[in-house]
């Protein structure tokens, strides 16, 4: 009404983001902390080659408190475990996805987009 449009910033608003689910996910599967973002997981991923499901990138978003994309894509994982097998850091991505689904589904109301 003042002639302004409240535009959402494109930046990751780290301080405003809800980091609780992320802390919970990291508690349930801490190995993602040692990820060096090499992308081998995404490269080998069948779903990742056919859809925007990029497990490496989504996990970066998750750790910054951004879940929208993750919530949209996380069910495309077939849990085949190739990502876990090629990971040079021994990250248990398969379990991570399971726990991410659990946490994000259980705490659904928390992320109701406003």
């Amino acid at each position: 009404m003042w002639g302004f449009n409240i535009t959402k910033t494109r930046a990751i608003d780290f301080d405003k983001n809800n980091r609780e689910p992320m802390m919970e996910i990291l508690r349930l599967e801490p190995s993602i902390r040692v990820c060096i973002a090499c992308g081998a997981c995404t490269a080998t991923c069948t779903s990742g080659n056919l859809t925007p499901f990029n497990i490496r990138q989504l996990n970066v978003f998750m750790q910054r408190g951004e879940y929208q994309e993750l919530k949209k894509e996380m069910h495309k994982c077939m849990l085949c475990g190739k990502c876990t097998l090629v990971c040079p850091r021994g990250v248990n991505l398969r379990h991570l996805i399971l726990k991410t689904r659990e946490v994000l589904l259980n705490e659904e109301p928390l992320f109701a987009q406003n």
Binding site: G39, T42, A43, N49
Partner: peptide, 12 residues
């Protein structure tokens, strides 16, 4: 070869 171009954020 199969890799991810991590800077592009896409499999390559």
């Amino acid at each position: 070869m199969k890799a991810e171009d991590t800077l592009a954020g896409k499999p390559l």
